[in-house]
């Protein structure tokens, strides 16, 4: 396989993200590990969204719903484990858990299960309608989370002890970063495989020309639904990790601003690019971090930065550095 210019940049981005926490250890700046972990987790969520948005052209403005659901899966399981209360007694007894693999699987399963009906209804619409109906579903879940008192409502839910992973000490920031980073790389690998698979090809073809795909006997609806569900599942996994990073989950993870932020990450990095979400997350977290430290009017300058990027740097960061792809 030939490594093109984009491939080189991808490797640089991946190495750069991996290098931050190690540099932090050398410089004794623990916080940069936290920052890098945040980048990796947001990137993972955005890679998830990229399955729907980048490959399928499905602009979901409601992915915060799945991100937040994953977070709540982690928060709720951990709380029940912490308090040693079973989650459910009947018909089967379900206990809480503070084991990351269990939490991850639950987050993935819940997000996928919720995404299935949401996708099934939303995918009947197209264009702006799709953007808005996904937003509507996310808002529903958001308001539900705020007004449902059992798990903290608007106050959210604290996770007092970071959940564990067999054989490693997750309390060590570097270890936790490596867990998140590994999952990110796995997701990127899945994305690359998926993109070049027949399934992925059909999805991309459906984005470009729906009638032609339908004509060769592939149902675009089913393919899109599958992509939407996979996309939600990965976002849910990222949400579970995010909850563990913050030791906390709250309805603001479900807010429309969060959905917007995930979209921003993808566009910043480069829509449809394999490493677009990673580059986007790194840039966004860094800009937010530095501007926030410099001025209390950071949101103004964040807005200006985003505006300049969208107006003058088409194709995002990777598009800028690697040049246009063939089909653009």
């Amino acid at each position: 396989m030939e490594i093109g210019r984009e491939g080189v940049i991808n490797i640089v981005v991946a190495v750069a993200l991996l290098a931050i926490p190690f540099a932090a250890v050398v410089l004794d700046e623990t916080f940069y590990i936290t920052l890098a972990t945040r980048m990796a987790i947001l990137a993972l969520a955005a890679v998830g969204l990229n399955f729907a948005l980048g490959l399928g052209g499905l602009v979901s403005f409601g992915h915060a719903a799945f991100f937040g659901l994953g977070g709540y899966a982690a928060g709720i399981l951990a709380t029940h484990a912490f308090n040693a209360e079973p989650l459910l007694l009947w018909p089967i007894e379900i206990l809480g858990s503070n084991s990351m693999p269990v939490i991850w699987l639950t987050a993935i399963a819940i997000s996928a299960l919720v995404a299935l009906p949401i996708g099934a209804i939303s995918l009947r619409t197209t264009g702006v309608y799709f953007i808005m109906i996904t937003l509507a579903f996310a808002q529903m879940i958001y308001y539900f989370a705020i007004s449902w008192p059992a798990y903290g409502g608007e106050d959210g839910l604290s996770i007092y002890v970071r959940n564990g992973f067999p054989g490693v000490n997750t309390l060590n920031p570097l270890t936790f970063f490596l867990i998140c980073y590994t999952l990110l790389i796995v997701a990127l690998f899945l994305f690359a495989v998926f993109k070049d698979s027949r399934f992925g090809a059909a999805l991309q073809a459906a984005r470009q020309n729906e009638t032609r795909v339908a004509a060769v006997g592939i149902a675009p609806y089913r393919i899109r639904l599958a992509a939407f569900v996979i996309s939600a599942a990965i976002a849910g996994l990222a949400g579970a990790l995010f909850a563990d990073l913050n030791r906390f989950v709250s309805p603001s993870m479900l807010s429309w601003q969060m959905s917007g932020e995930l979209i921003i990450l993808i566009i910043l990095g480069g829509t449809g690019r394999l490493f677009g979400p990673v580059a986007g997350a790194m840039i966004f977290v860094l800009v937010e971090y530095f501007l926030g430290g410099i001025t209390e009017r950071w949101q103004f300058f964040l807005g200006l930065t985003l505006l300049v990027v969208v107006l003058f740097a088409r194709g995002g960061f990777i598009g800028l550095v690697a040049g246009r792809t063939r089909h653009e």
Binding site: N246, F248, S250, G293
Partner: peptide, 22 residues
């Protein structure tokens, strides 16, 4: 050292980490 949390819990947590660790 003052920093704006934008009334967002996640951001507040991040700033708290920064203030404690960095």
């Amino acid at each position: 050292v003052t920093e704006d949390d934008g009334q967002k819990p996640e951001l507040a947590v991040q700033i708290a980490d920064k203030m404690v660790q960095s």
